[in-house]
Amino acid sequence: MSIVVENLTHVYMKGSPFESVALDDVSFEIQDGEFVGLIGHTGSGKSTLVQHLNGLLKPTKGRIIVDNIDITERTKSSKWLRQHVGLVFQYPEHQLFEETVYLDIAFGPKNLNLSNDEVEKRVREAMELVGLDYDSLKDRSPFEISGGQRRRVAIAGVLAMKPKVLILDEPTAGLDPKGRDEILGQIKDLHRERGMTIILVSHSMEDIAKLVDRIIVMNNSRIALMGKPEEVFSHVDELQEMGLDIPQIAHVIRGLRERGMDVPENIYTVEQAAAAILAMVRGRSNA
């Protein structure tokens, strides 16, 4: 499902002394099946932006078109929209409320008036997608399981609605490296195997660099940079001025190039760096 955002402006508490512009003339397009990373420091407008994409906020100005349907004005479309654009908030496990894992994940599908069989099928599928064992966990209280598991229950609750677009706001915040890698791996599979359109909001350049097709960088309520990871990461000074950082490995490559070493510029993962340095050293010894 494609998303088109045209000249989107959002002003909080307009007309009051607390008026503040959270989004200022933002335009971009996301293609069906794309995996996009959204970065920016706290207060840059990225959370305000994603809340527009499933109709939680309405633009002050501008248009949003999802799957060729203008969602800006038509309030009738909001049920359709929330079903198709799933939004996983920051710390989504704080929103768990049911007595069992099963009931919590089933809450959304039940509200779609689906049959019990269909609800059960969806809960099973959603749990499988996030790597939770159905039989051993379905009857547990969501408050007795580990933090990483709780987060996956919350994500499963969104997946059980079978959205076409999945937006995740900092899905790995506060998780340890193992929990983070598991969740990112599952998100990657949703994109690869199910063809879902994914928007990942993250502070971690390392995670973004490994996963996404394209990066949108927000700063001061506007889009500051947009493009493939290697394009965006080449703007080191601008990113640092915005309080963002490039992956550590990109600093190494930059340092090497400044010292006159023959390595390509657009490298931002450990694998790529190792390959480039080996190629450089071996090329030298063969010469």
Binding site: P177, D181, P247, I249, A274, L278
Partner: peptide, 20 residues
Amino acid sequence: IGLDVPQVTELAYRLRVEGL
């Protein structure tokens, strides 16, 4: 044990494995 190392340390490790 599922922990990260800084990217620099990981790069050093990979280069050493390759014999550098």
